[in-house]
Amino acid sequence: MSDNTDSPPAAELAREYFGHVADRDPDAMAAMVHEDVVEEFVVLGTFHGRAALRDFFAELFAAVPDSTFEIESIHAVDADTAIGQWRFTGTFDGGPFQGIEPTGADLDFRGVDVMEFEARSADEKRLCHNTIYYDGLTFARQVGLLPDEDSLGDRALMTGFNGLTKVRRELLD
């Protein structure tokens, strides 16, 4: 996809930050954030602080050693906020990630970050809050945590879930 970039200053900061993700450099990422940054992965959890951010990405890069991070677009909302769309690919064959043991699975999913920057000084802004939306269902299917869509396992899981839901409803009535 094309790399649509609005300039100043939030979009430029987002581009720089995403560049460190693409370079697989959690230390450089951590250097761009406030000490008490909030990284809110909507489907995964919230991570507070620079050390938590650094540790999260170090774990991700160790889990997916061949990962690539492609910026699809970056847009400035205003001087302090940017939205970036991205694509993450790689093989989950390194270390564990968030308690999930590596499966050797190929990963390919997309997401969007809503990044808020705040002035640290008159000439320096740092990331203070980032809300990350990504396709957690696709990620779970790709790593093998959930069955493939429309597979026998997927249909069995849905059937079991619906059966349990009906039993619960009957018990509560």
Rank of each mutant, 00 (worst) to 15 (best):
A52C: 05
A62Q: 11
A51H: 01
L44F: 10
G49T: 09
A63P: 09
G49Y: 02
F47E: 07
V21P: 03
E72C: 05
G49A: 10
L44P: 02
T81F: 00
T81M: 09
D78H: 02
A82R: 04
A22H: 08
D36H: 08
F57N: 15
A52D: 12
P26R: 04
D36Q: 09
V43N: 08
D55H: 04
T68K: 10
L44R: 12
E59T: 14
T68E: 14
G49S: 07
F57M: 13
I83M: 14
V21S: 05
L60C: 01
E72F: 00
V37S: 07
H75E: 15
F56Q: 01
T46G: 09
E35I: 02
S67Y: 00
E35T: 13
A28K: 08
A76P: 08
H48C: 03
R50L: 04
E72P: 11
S73N: 14
E72Y: 00
F47K: 03
V37A: 06
F69V: 11
V42C: 03
V21R: 01
A31H: 03
V21L: 14
G45C: 13
F69L: 08
D55C: 00
A79K: 02
V38Q: 10
L44K: 00
I83R: 02
V77Q: 04
F61G: 06
D25T: 02
S73L: 04
P26M: 04
H48T: 15
V37P: 00
E39T: 11
F57S: 11
V38T: 15
D36P: 03
E72N: 12
M32F: 03
V77D: 02
A76K: 01
E70W: 00
M32E: 10
A52K: 03
D23L: 08
P65G: 09
M32Y: 00
L53D: 05
